[in-house]
Design a protein around this nucleic acid. Structure first.
Lengths: 162, 162
DNA sequence: CAGTATCCCATATGATACTG
DNA sequence: CAGTATCATATGGGATACTG
């Protein structure tokens, strides 16, 4: 048995969705910028000082995120001041929250020794929220009870190539 | 209302768990190496050719992951060959799978246009598995229905500092 | 096969200064 | 306040060659 036989990886996975997301957001600042937005920080200067990121990089990252469609600018005006922009997550950006929740969960458990400085709550009930793996029929699944499979389309693509 | 007032971010979050996890695994290769392990690829040379990563970087990354405790080496021996090592996820590494599932989910939806080359299944039932946000009492929560709060300990830390 | 060591380069980042 | 432009640097990564 060569290792190749039982592995799923291969040319068909060069652009697997994990790699795709990382290509879009896998640099060292994008996720942190999105975290700020998630945590309610919306303005350039505040993000900059919170994150300790350089102004040029923050400017670049925000532009990229807007371009990607995960962030949008919203005009606002302080009384007696000119109109400026603040930044908000788009729907596409909000759908990234599970990534942040997963990162936070692992960091809570394995970096911060069991719990972190932030907890997540349902806005209505106030109950704590967490991420779970479930089957379509609603059964909980542990991470080690899960296996990846090539989708039908990927198998077909692989077959024609061989 | 200054933006500062309604944001959660601040000095107490410099080492929030998202940043912590990213610090450990946020480089451009670690997650991809872990993906290979998740997909069943365990040997150095195979990972190297699958990923198109340079040998030195792969070597370095594997060492770091072992050091972090998310990967361990397991000796194996091909008949008539000397003993070598292969790599496996530890429990701590397996607990990182939700991060990969979340990345995959977003990539499926927003990079690969609705579906990707890989699906995840319960080993037993074969049913598809996905990530869900739920309250402790089992209610499903949409990403936009969720808000972050400072934990009790973080509030206390913040209070003493001010 | 499974690495390690060396060297070189591209690029990401930060510091600083400037602008509306 | 909210950026943009320029520059210097550091670091990450690849290519290559070597070793057990």
């Amino acid at each position: 048995m060569t290792p190749k036989d039982d592995g799923l990886a291969g040319p068909s996975l060069d652009h697997c969705s994990i790699a795709g997301t990382l290509e879009a957001l896998g640099d060292s600042w994008s996720i942190l910028v999105l975290r700020e937005l998630f945590f309610g920080v919306r303005r350039f200067n505040e993000m900059q000082s919170e994150l300790g990121i350089s102004r040029s990089v923050l400017s670049d990252r925000l532009a990229r995120l807007v371009n990607l469609g995960v962030v949008r600018t919203v005009p606002y005006q302080e009384p007696g001041d000119r109109v400026r922009n603040e930044y908000r997550l788009t729907r596409k950006g909000v759908e990234l929250l599970p990534v942040m929740v997963a990162l936070m969960g692992w960091g809570d458990a394995h970096v911060n020794g069991g719990c972190g400085p932030v907890t997540l709550h349902d806005k209505r009930s106030g109950e704590r929220v967490r991420l779970e793996l479930r089957t379509e029929s609603g059964e909980r699944v542990e991470p080690n009870e899960m296996e990846p499979r090539l989708s039908r389309s990927a198998r077909k693509a692989l077959a024609t190539r061989q």
